[in-house]
Amino acid sequence: MASQEIEALASALARLPGLGPRSARRAVLWLVKNRERALPQLVETLAAVQDTLVECETCFNVDTRNPCGICADPRRDAKSICVVEDVSDLWALDRARLFQGTYHVLGGRLSALDGVRPEDLTVGELLQRVEAGGVDEVVLAMNATLEGQTTAHYLAERLEAFPVKVTQLAHGLPVGGELDYLDEGTLAQALRARRPVD
């Protein structure tokens, strides 16, 4: 029978996404075995995160400063904003360093069934940023799920009132993908989004 502390740690870890009780117990066991080195490191980094982590008031990215490193970076093009559902999407896009502009994290996607409404997302703040001026383009980088696309639709319509170009990530053929292996939905999207060859 594990001690109360260990049980508490395991149940705290079990709530992390992708973990669950069994993996959590395994992680705890590993931490106990490596308590000399790994445990202090974990405790320190967790404490540092707790002390310094803030949400950027401009784009709602998570960073140790506010405004965040991206918003504060003078090399970034503040004239274009890429709107993403979650911080993880921002990380995915920024890992590749493909987008030179700034971001806006919505904090989720519209879902009537899950009770996520426009006012639960940072839509108002996005519109304020655009309204304040200095923005030429808004890139909607929602997931290709039904809720994601509904959200993109919603934002596109709300942004119509402003003199900005609204674009959306293309859907279709994955890089390295073979037509043969694609489902019809993806193929139809790819056909619809076809473009002239330069």
Partner: peptide, 21 residues
């Protein structure tokens, strides 16, 4: 299901959201 959920709300559904769905 999303649309029906909005329709069943007490409040008038957000027309832009409805259009998206």
């Amino acid at each position: 299901r999303e649309r029906n959920r909005l329709l069943a709300d007490d409040a008038l559904p957000d027309p832009v959201w409805m259009a998206g769905i």
